[in-house]
């Protein structure tokens, strides 16, 4: 976890989410939208930016309200704040980007339960200053957007032989449909995470880590086996 007591520069708060603690590829959070909307590059970018917007706004508000929210009802309060911003971005996208809005479909309202957002609210925004929380949200959002864009580009180029809707000469006649199917999503994400592990040259995480999971406290409280995540989010 990043919220150790040592002082960190604001630049670190911004950049840590992009590569070092990338929420999707290293933290393994927010897998549902990562797999579901990445069959076209433009959807990946749209989803990433929508999530970034919600993440920055909710981090700001939660950080401002951190003293006002009693800790017993903090999770429901956080969820309501997040859901409010999700409704806002739904309206904005419906008005300005109707195409992306309709192709994201149900996954736009489901940003509410994206565990990256709740995870950052619980692990960072409720403990840190407003400025740091905004930077943290922005960095994590950019990291998420980048991961989604890379993955969606790979799937679109291999699966439908185009990029951002523009056809690529040789590939569009030899497209591998599997990559834009659900099974291709699992496959590409598995390969990207393996690649990140290889590049980072570290031991791959054995399982979904509890870092950043908003339910870490409940998990331990429930008396479950120490390293077994019950994976609620």
């Amino acid at each position: 976890m990043s919220n150790s007591t040592e002082k960190k520069s604001s630049l670190f708060e911004l950049t840590k989410g992009i590569i070092k603690e990338n929420p999707t590829l290293v933290g393994l959070l927010g897998m549902c939208p990562t797999l579901a909307v990445t069959n076209q590059a433009i959807n990946g970018i749209g989803m990433g930016l929508a999530t970034t917007f919600v993440l920055v706004c909710s981090n700001t508000v939660i950080s401002l309200l951190k003293k006002a929210i009693p800790s017993t009802v903090r999770l429901p309060s956080f969820i309501v704040i997040i859901a409010g911003f999700v409704t806002l971005i739904e309206f904005l996208m419906k008005g300005y980007l109707p195409d992306v809005y309709s192709s994201l479909g149900i996954f736009l309202p489901l940003i509410t339960v994206n565990c990256i957002i709740l995870g950052r609210a619980e692990a960072f925004a409720s403990k840190n200053s407003v400025g740091a929380s905004v930077l943290d949200g922005l960095g994590m959002g950019i990291g998420f957007t980048l991961a989604l864009t890379v993955m969606a580009s790979i799937r679109e180029i291999l699966g439908s032989g185009s990029f951002m809707g523009i056809k690529i000469p040789v590939l569009c006649d030899n497209s591998m449909l599997m990559f834009i199917m659900p099974c291709g999503g699992f496959f590409v994400l598995g390969c990207i995470i393996a690649l990140v592990n290889k590049l980072a040259n570290k031991k791959p995480p054995k399982e979904i880590s509890c870092a950043g999971c908003p339910h870490a406290a409940i998990c331990k409280g429930a008396g479950s086996k120490s390293d077994e995540c019950q994976g609620g989010v």
Binding site: F187, P205, E207
Partner: peptide, 8 residues
């Protein structure tokens, strides 16, 4: 090993 194999 771990998550990538599970995803595949």
């Amino acid at each position: 090993r771990g998550v990538p194999a599970t995803l595949i």
